[in-house]
Amino acid sequence: MSSQTITVSRFFKSLIAGFFVAMMLIAMPSHALTDIISFKSPEQEQLYRELTAELRCPKCQNQNIADSNAVVAVDMRHKTLQLVEQGMDKSQVIDYMKTRYGDFVHYQPPFRFSTMWLWLLPMMLILMLALLMLKKQRQQPTVENTDDADLQAMIDAVRKKK
């Protein structure tokens, strides 16, 4: 009786396993849908890859055109390829896109009055932190030179302030 139960459960287990394997096989080919592009030269391929990674999809929030399948991103990829094949260099393609989709379309913002703080603020912060660290280092009393009397004087000074 019990041995029969085991064989039945084994049968079901293998059935379930078989089902999952079948599901995986069915699901496999779905991610094979990508653009197949033949490039005229490895340089052009390299340029195309750089451009599609740096150009930003204007329809989606924070995706480059290589990652997006929005209609506008697909059209931009095709246009990029076309322009690269025409022999345009990187900055020419970026300018071509910018005259249509604005500065937003390139991940590197230009230096302008309106974008000034974007560039200046991080530099200012780094400079400020560096200065602060330098100042702190100078102020720090060296432990070796401090004897008990000095220490007591410092403690008294702090207490008086309070």
Binding site: P58, K59, A70, V71, V72, D75, M76, K79, R100, Y101, G102
Partner: peptide
């Protein structure tokens, strides 16, 4: 072919 649409910077 969305050519004018592209030149106009239309996103959708």
């Amino acid at each position: 072919h969305r050519s004018l649409i592209f030149d106009l910077g239309v996103t959708g």
